[in-house]
């Protein structure tokens, strides 16, 4: 029962895939192939990310995280969050477990949100790729709007949440 409850979303999505296969064989087959492709991507990217966060959890003391990314880390904390998020690889869902460990270790919520924003959109390897595909003007314009945008979104989000909500997010991160 516990298994069924945990995997109910997955079961529903598999059923949707089967339904699509019955409805339109070509489209269903394409969806299946694309899912297998994403699975391959996940299998490649997940082990290093989770091993890194395990190491981070064990080796980096709370005081260090608080000092560099905590409440009083100021502009240095913002810069560090940007750098850490931009230097990574992998899809956005890889950022969330890492962000949760940051929270658990006492990083400031806005910094964690900046880290997620940077991971989502200012990754350095992706920027180079964007540059060659869509041109300097496009890539540079986007980067220049995104940097203040990410900071603005992070601060707006922490403003919108109540103290209790923020507290429960930290509690949740501890239990993961």
């Amino acid at each position: 029962m516990k298994f069924l409850k945990r995997y109910r979303f997955f079961i529903v999505s598999i059923l949707a895939l089967l339904f699509l296969l019955l409805l339109n064989h070509g489209l269903g087959w394409k969806a299946l192939n694309l899912s297998m492709y994403s699975l391959k991507e996940m299998v490649l990217i997940i082990p290093p990310i989770f091993i890194l966060l395990g190491l981070l959890d064990i080796w980096v003391p709370r005081e260090t995280m608080v000092k560099y990314m905590g409440e009083k880390s100021g502009i240095k904390g913002i810069a560090l969050s940007f750098l850490l998020g931009s230097a990574t690889a992998g899809p956005l869902y890889g950022a969330f477990p890492v962000a949760a460990i940051f929270l658990k270790k006492g990083a400031k919520l806005t910094n964690v949100l900046i880290f997620i924003g940077a991971w989502s959109t200012t990754k350095i390897p992706m920027f180079l790729f964007e540059l060659s595909s869509l041109g300097v003007k496009f890539a540079l314009t986007r980067l220049l709007i995104d940097i203040p945008g990410i900071i603005l979104i992070a601060f707006t989000l922490s403003r919108l949440l109540s103290k209790e909500e923020i507290k429960s997010i930290y509690e949740n991160a501890k239990s993961l």
């Binding site: 979303f9 969806a31 959890d57």
Partner: peptide
């Protein structure tokens, strides 16, 4: 650390698997 990594992964696995199928569709 490796045990923690595995626990964190196992914890999110159901959601990750659903995402993969949905992305394919």
């Amino acid at each position: 650390a490796l045990k923690k990594a595995w626990k964190a992964f196992e914890n999110i696995l159901p959601q990750l698997l659903s995402v993969i199928v949905l992305v394919g569709i």
